[in-house]
Amino acid sequence: MITFEQQYKQILTPLCFHCPEPYFAPAHNRIPHVGCCSYSPTFTLFELYQAIKEDKLESFKPYLQYDFIIDDFEFKVPAIVDESFFTLDVSGLSESELEEQKLPYSICQFFKKNQGCSLHPALKNATCRSFICPTAEETLQNDQQQQVEAWVKSIQYEARAFNKKHKPILSERNLTLAENLVEIISYFNTIAFSEQKKGEF
């Protein structure tokens, strides 16, 4: 069963508690089976705005520093990689191949045992809120698969539209996450306050 949670726009399924997808199986039984929570999530301006709007910026503050910034407007939180990975010979692999090789050895920093994702739902990125693995999707009828596809498009569109609108504004002001975090937070605080005032009328 797959459902769409309206408030925070996320696709949910109880299958995730016992992930059936072979692709996400851990490398060995000493590593917890966390399914797709083995990947390293990337957060955009949209998630940063959501954190500010929900007054939950503290969840991201440890990662809003230079080492985690992957471009002017995104930051990546690397998964925790089991030490056994570092015994492998990964010479000659491209960056994308290396990341894929790490998956069976990795656990997202936000994953908590018996809970799953520890982030507030509003702070999860669009991928985490919309991803459904092939094994879960195969349990659906055709009409249900089409519905899930529509939910995915809706989730992805909201984040893309927000980023497309605000990236050029920040670029024009020469503001980046690495160099001007305080100014960007102030910018989003102004927007959140404006949205709140609109909602009062």
Rank of each mutant, 00 (worst) to 15 (best):
M1D: 13
M1L: 09
Q6D: 02
Q10S: 08
T13R: 04
T13L: 08
T13W: 05
C16G: 14
F17P: 00
H18A: 14
H18D: 14
P20Y: 13
P20C: 11
P22S: 13
P22A: 14
H28D: 05
H28T: 05
N29C: 05
N29R: 04
N29L: 06
R30A: 15
I31F: 14
P32S: 05
P32I: 08
C36G: 12
C37K: 06
C37M: 14
S40M: 00
T42C: 08
T42D: 06
T44Y: 09
L45A: 07
L45D: 04
Q50A: 07
E54H: 10
E54L: 04
D55G: 04
L57T: 05
L57M: 06
F60Y: 09
K61F: 10
Y63A: 07
Q65K: 11
Q65V: 06
Q65C: 09
Y66T: 12
F68Q: 04
I69A: 03
I69E: 00
I69V: 08
I70V: 15
D72P: 09
E74L: 06
K76H: 09
V77L: 00
A79V: 11
A79K: 02
A79G: 09
V81I: 14
V81F: 09
D82M: 02
E83V: 13
E83D: 15
T87K: 01
L93V: 07
E95L: 06
E97C: 12
E97K: 13
E97L: 08
E97D: 14
L103W: 07
P104L: 08
C108Q: 03
C108Y: 02
F110V: 07
F111D: 00
K113P: 01
N114K: 11
G116M: 03
C117G: 12
S118M: 12
L119A: 11
P121F: 09
N125T: 13
N125D: 14
T127E: 09
C128N: 02
C128L: 03
R129C: 13
S130Q: 05
I132H: 04
C133D: 05
P134C: 09
T135Q: 11
T135D: 10
A136C: 15
T139I: 02
L140N: 07
Q141K: 15
N142L: 14
N142T: 14
D143P: 00
D143K: 00
D143Y: 01
Q144G: 02
Q145C: 08
Q146K: 13
Q146G: 07
E149C: 12
A150D: 06
V152I: 15
S154E: 14
Q156K: 15
E158V: 03
A159E: 03
R160T: 10
A161M: 11
F162P: 05
F162K: 05
K164H: 12
K165P: 00
H166N: 15
P168D: 02
I169D: 10
E172V: 12
E172Q: 14
R173Y: 06
L175M: 15
L175Q: 13
L175V: 12
L175G: 10
T176Q: 01
T176S: 06
L177G: 08
E179V: 05
N180M: 02
N180K: 00
L181D: 10
L181N: 10
V182N: 01
V182H: 00
E183Q: 12
I184G: 03
I184E: 01
I185S: 03
S186E: 07
F188L: 02
N189Y: 05
T190S: 14
A192R: 05
S194W: 11
E195L: 13
K198W: 12
G199H: 13
G199Q: 15
E200V: 11
E200D: 10
